[in-house]
């Protein structure tokens, strides 16, 4: 799989897939998509990059250790439930707010952060597994 074409195209495909995964993540509340699927797409993007160009570039590119990303995601998802408790409703009850940023009304909610948490956990855990398998593949 170490062909020149694959190696040249892999970074572009990866970049596109990561952007696409974020798009899927954000639109998930109203259209097909969401954190889980988005996370899987991003994880496969990194897996492809790793197969094409080796694991070290991937590790450099994502900067954090995959499990730190997953851990942060889990923390974020767990914390996303806290504001509800402060507001006096049960843990993880959705709270919505619509601030206007530059004439655009933006829908912000605690489920959004929860979903980002899910996305990060899936990306981190799956990428971690794939990369360590690929490392052993070469090493």
């Amino acid at each position: 799989m170490n062909t020149l074409i694959f190696r040249t195209f892999a970074p572009f495909i990866t970049g596109l897939m990561v952007v696409f995964s974020i798009f899927i993540l954000l639109r998930g509340h109203n259209e097909p998509g969401g954190g889980f699927i988005g996370g899987l797409i991003a994880a496969s993007a990194f897996a492809i990059y790793g197969i094409a160009n080796g694991v070290p570039p991937v590790r450099r590119a994502i900067y954090f250790h995959p499990h730190s990303i997953a851990g942060f995601g889990l923390l974020l998802a767990a914390l996303a439930g806290i504001p509800s408790m402060v507001a006096g409703v049960p843990y993880l009850t959705a709270l919505w707010t619509y601030p206007v940023i530059g004439n655009v009304e933006v829908a912000l909610s605690t489920p959004l952060f929860f979903d980002i948490g899910v996305y990060l956990v899936v990306v981190g855990a799956i990428t971690g597994i794939a990369l360590s398998l690929e490392e052993r593949h070469r090493g």
């Binding site: 998930g28 109203n30 998509g33 969401g34 954190g35 829908a107 489920p111 899910v118």
Partner: peptide, 12 residues
């Protein structure tokens, strides 16, 4: 839940 995608609304 202000969401059109029922699957995702259930999940999150």
């Amino acid at each position: 839940a202000h969401g059109g995608n029922i699957v995702n609304v259930i999940i999150v």
